[in-house]
């Protein structure tokens, strides 16, 4: 049978994820950078906590590129003469913790509500969608300001507010995908072979929409970091002496004309973290999709 022969031609050898990662240079660099950030997240405040708060008036707004005041000043000093590098490393924990918690919270809550809206009855779906409409039509910054003004501006409250403002995106995307996927024949087939509704959602629908949600999540990651910096700038987000990259950008803004590096390096950190997340999630999406995976396995794919 000719079809069987053709099938035999399909590359069968499945490389491990490690091998695939080593072959994709961009994804590898992105992964290394994220591992580096994760190390900062775990150990940063313990190792550099002191350096990040030590004032050194001789290094006030010191430009980057010189190690006169020690190698920690390689990225320059801030308005109070604190090491920007040390502060970046220390801020990684707060920044990543807030942004990641917020986006994951938004994704999980949005996905669950979206699945309910898309899969179970119209009535409950309408209620959920109108709820999403209200959230979206209310200016998110205003909502955050009101909530954080009434409640304490603490880290958990900040995370919840950020998550709520991002929730409608996940909700809508999930609902739209569920509405499409539930009509696919394989869902009917699963029902005909005795799968319960819960089982279908968990085993047949979730795996299909997960890559889409993860892609949105990496984009949202940067949006949330910037939103957090905005709130911190208004004084209702993270309170000094706690720091985040967003707060560093906000504080550096005052000195933009004299000392651009104050805002530039934390901004760069946000951008690189987001970019790495994007590249890696894109790579993950392809690797985890059985129909796309060969693109990474095929030799010489860098020419494509």
């Amino acid at each position: 049978m000719s079809t069987a022969e053709q099938e035999a031609l399909i590359i069968r050898r499945r490389s491990s994820w490690w091998q695939l990662l080593l072959r994709d240079r961009f994804a590898l660099v992105a992964a290394l950078w994220l591992i580096c950030l994760f190390a900062c997240f775990l150990f940063g405040p313990e190792l550099f906590g002191k350096a990040a708060t030590t004032l050194n008036l001789r290094a006030r707004n010191m430009p980057p590129g010189s190690t006169e005041q020690g190698w920690l000043m390689i990225l320059g000093g801030d308005a109070l003469g604190r090491s920007i590098l040390a502060r970046l490393i220390v801020a990684a924990r707060n920044t990543l913790a807030i942004a990641l918690s917020a986006v994951f919270l938004a994704m999980i809550a949005g996905a669950v509500l979206g699945m309910i809206a898309g899969y179970f009855g119209r009535g409950i779906g309408h209620v959920i969608m109108r709820f999403a409409d209200i959230l979206q039509s209310f200016p998110s910054l205003l909502l955050a300001v009101v909530v954080l003004y009434v409640l304490e501006p603490s880290v958990p409250n900040l995370i919840i507010v950020l998550a709520i403002t991002r929730l409608p995106v996940y909700l809508r995307v999930t609902r739209a995908e569920v509405l499409e996927i539930r009509e696919r024949v394989f869902v009917d087939a699963a029902r005909a072979l005795g799968s319960s509704r819960y089982h279908i959602l968990r085993r047949h629908i979730t795996p299909v929409i997960a890559p889409t949600l993860l892609t949105i999540l990496t984009v949202d990651f940067s949006i949330v970091m910037l939103a957090e910096s905005g709130l911190s700038f208004l004084g209702i987000g993270i309170q000094p002496p706690e720091i985040t990259w967003g707060l560093m950008v906000a504080q550096g803004r005052n000195y933009l004309s004299q000392a651009w590096w104050l805002a530039f390096f934390p901004g760069l950190a946000i951008m690189l973290a987001t970019l790495s997340g994007n590249i890696l999630s894109n790579w993950l999406r392809i690797v985890s999709d059985p129909e796309q995976r060969w693109r990474l396995e095929a030799p010489g794919k860098n020419d494509a």
Binding site: F186, A189, A192, L193, G194, P207
Partner: peptide, 26 residues
């Protein structure tokens, strides 16, 4: 729920287009 429990165990169905009836990601 009772009928779904019988489905597969007591009654099963084969569809026209097997490509569409199988989940592409598993």
């Amino acid at each position: 729920a009772d009928w779904r429990d019988s489905c597969g165990r007591e009654v099963a169905m084969v569809f026209q287009d097997a490509l569409m009836s199988l989940n592409p990601v598993f």
